[in-house]
């Protein structure tokens, strides 16, 4: 029984890669840290891949980080290790990246991969959601930009067409001054762990009044949980928040966070901790911009 070899492509340029994707549906491999695990097929047997494989990890077009006005553009194939070294990357995102896996995985894994893998427990996702990250998708027919929350539709389900590549992650207005951003990953241990709960909070204050506030929760539902409605109710309130406001926000998320029991934790734990982290964030007496 001789198995057909899976076709693999590794082009020098993004352009050729996009042309190939336009011709053929391929499995796109950036760092491979998810694909290699997902398609494992038993000890001593090579990966079984459902489609031809196309490598993009080496494409320099996908590895740039630059500033455009107040936005940061991050090439989708920048590895976590590269981002940790880059001066333009916000400290809060670096802190989130440091909680991912371990150095070997961070040397391979990419920010674009974390998004396209669309795991409910994707480590950087809560933070990217509160940054209102936009994604630049490129194909032979041109570019389009989508909101991360529209792009990710469910566990391992993203709105990417067969001929598209996620080229850039755009963090809009991230260089605007005055936002305080928090990220907390709760795992079963301090490295090589899959999140049981993820929380990101973003708040911008002007003379004790809230100008903008955002929250996102990871690993407590099929995708990140965020509520623009709840966030809006806090805009204009003064810091420190009144107990009644805190209770109302927590109650709001209590209704929409519906985690599951699995081999890593319990639904009760996930929900309690998610709300604990939220309450703690809301109860702070002051928020120092970071």
């Amino acid at each position: 029984m001789v198995e057909k070899m899976t076709a693999t492509y590794r082009f020098d340029r993004l352009e050729q890669t996009l042309s190939q994707l336009n011709r053929e549906d391929c499995l796109i491999m950036a760092g491979g840290t998810d694909i290699m695990v997902l398609h494992k097929s038993g000890r001593g047997v090579p990966l079984k891949l459902p489609k031809p494989l196309i490598f993009i990890d080496h494409l320099s077009e996908l590895k740039q980080v630059f500033q455009n006005h107040k936005d940061i553009h991050i090439g989708a194939c920048c590895t976590y290790s590269e981002l940790l070294e880059h001066p333009l990357i916000p400290v809060s995102l670096k802190n989130a990246i440091k909680t991912i896996a371990a150095p070997a995985i961070r040397n391979r894994g990419t920010l674009g991969g974390n998004i396209c893998n669309a795991s409910p427990a994707g480590d950087t996702l809560p933070l990217l959601y509160v940054y209102n990250a936009k994604l630049l998708l490129r194909s032979v027919t041109g570019d389009r930009i989508v909101e991360i929350s529209d792009f990710i539709q469910g566990p391992r389900r993203v709105q990417r067409y067969q001929n598209e590549i996620l080229a850039e992650i755009i963090l809009p207005s991230v260089l605007e001054e005055g936002a305080y951003v928090v990220f907390e990953k709760v795992g079963n241990r301090n490295a090589d762990a899959i999140a049981k709960v993820g929380f990101a909070g973003y708040i911008r204050i002007n003379e004790a009044r809230i100008e903008d506030v955002r929250f996102a929760f990871g690993a407590v539902g099929p995708t990140m949980v965020r509520s623009i409605d709840i966030e809006r109710k806090l805009v204009g309130k003064t810091i420190p928040l009144a107990d009644a406001d805190i209770v109302q926000v927590v109650a709001g998320f209590d209704k929409i966070i519906r985690p599951i029991d699995d081999q890593r934790s319990t639904a009760t734990y996930r929900k309690t901790v998610a709300l604990n982290l939220l309450r703690y964030f809301l109860s702070m007496k002051q928020y120092q911009a970071n």
């Binding site: 079963n188 241990r189 090589d192 762990a193 899959i194 081999q263 890593r264």
Partner: peptide, 27 residues
């Protein structure tokens, strides 16, 4: 406090090192 293995209806639930969670050098 860290390593947790459970059995449900006769099946071990944690089948990978990361789900079981033995300590790393950061723990």
């Amino acid at each position: 406090y860290l390593e947790k293995m459970t059995s449900k209806q006769g099946k071990i639930q944690q089948k990978s090192i990361s789900d079981y969670g033995p300590p790393t050098s950061l723990d």
